[in-house]
Nucleic acid binder design. Structure first.
Lengths: 174, 174
DNA sequence: ACCCATTTCTTGGCCGACCAAGGTAATCTT
DNA sequence: AAGATTACCTTGGTCGGCCAAGAAATGGGT
């Protein structure tokens, strides 16, 4: 085994090293994965000063924007798995960023809202998020930015539909 | 606090619903996050039939390609945290996809190689990865694909350098 | 009224991924 | 040769994220 069916074959590879096999099998997928990881790390850094972990900003943003909402509504909004949101909210609550109370109108539902203390973070998060955006798009002119957004939207559409069929699809228009 | 109690507030919002605040604060970052998540889910689906979890394909690809390698070499190649690779390898080993043995030449190092049985997966993984790529890029013509790749590369470069300074930077050229 | 389906949330389990800290072995320094 | 530094890997902890399965309440159908 141990390859030799392999790229770095004795005779000398057709393609120069530096291009891993995975990059050849799917350059765009490879790029997406790499960018995603780096972007998440960068998000973690700018959010660190705010006391949030990457991913939580989406939840908090929605809560700041929408006020007290039913948890199911929040789940639809952020388009994450319910269990993910549950655990995230448990941590956010413990950190004092969020308050939860049972919905009087529907005893199985839970109302969620941003804590008073957390509201001071809104501006910080927006600043951090803006910095992340600037850092991400540095060196891209307006056309390139627009094009990137357009292409990413297309890719998102692809990944949502077709064979994979996105779990929460029609949540968009509300 | 609590913004204005209600989600659909009485006065009517300044901006139409459907554009979450987070999308306004950083549209590209938002798009990257969403695409990343969907892409990972899609990867998980195509890899499920192969018995791999998303992320593991990078490791396996490198092992198939390079044969037995020192773990540190593998870590540099996939550009992940050492602890991440360690735990991943433990699971891959337990699943029978990978073999590990101490390096006789350096008693603190570990040699890793793809198991004989795993080599049958190479073709499947490449097919799955190809399918993922096709799915991701569906509806994009050649120019758009090239442009997307170019822009993602620029973004990756951005996120690697500057304020964030990518942990494993010079690993590129070898 | 009753039973069944649906909605809503939680729990447990598992993975990828990070950081921080530790232990061992090789290497560099003095 | 002894000591300090570095390289290599592991462990433990924490998070986001998924799935599968479950408890609880609501709502519909007959």
């Amino acid at each position: 085994m141990k390859a030799d069916p392999a790229p770095t074959d004795p005779a000398g590879p057709a393609c120069p090293p530096g291009l891993p096999a995975v990059a050849m099998a799917g350059p765009a997928s490879h790029a997406v994965s790499r960018v995603a990881r780096l972007h998440r790390i960068a998000a973690g850094k700018v959010l660190k000063g705010v006391g949030l972990y990457p991913g939580q900003e989406f939840v908090m943003m929605h809560l700041w924007e929408a006020g007290p909402v039913r948890q199911s509504e929040l789940i639809k909004a952020v388009e994450l798995d319910p269990s993910t949101v549950t655990k995230m909210l448990q941590r956010l609550e413990q950190a004092g960023h969020v308050r939860r109370r049972p919905d009087p109108a529907d005893r199985r539902a839970v109302l969620v809202e941003a804590s008073d203390a957390s509201c001071g973070l809104l501006a910080q998060v927006e600043r951090a998020w803006g910095e992340l955006e600037r850092h991400t798009l540095a060196g891209l002119d307006e056309d390139e930015r627009a094009e990137l957004l357009r292409l990413l939207a297309k890719v998102e559409e692809n990944l949502c539909t077709e064979t994979a069929e996105c779990p929460e699809r029609r949540a968009a228009q509300g």
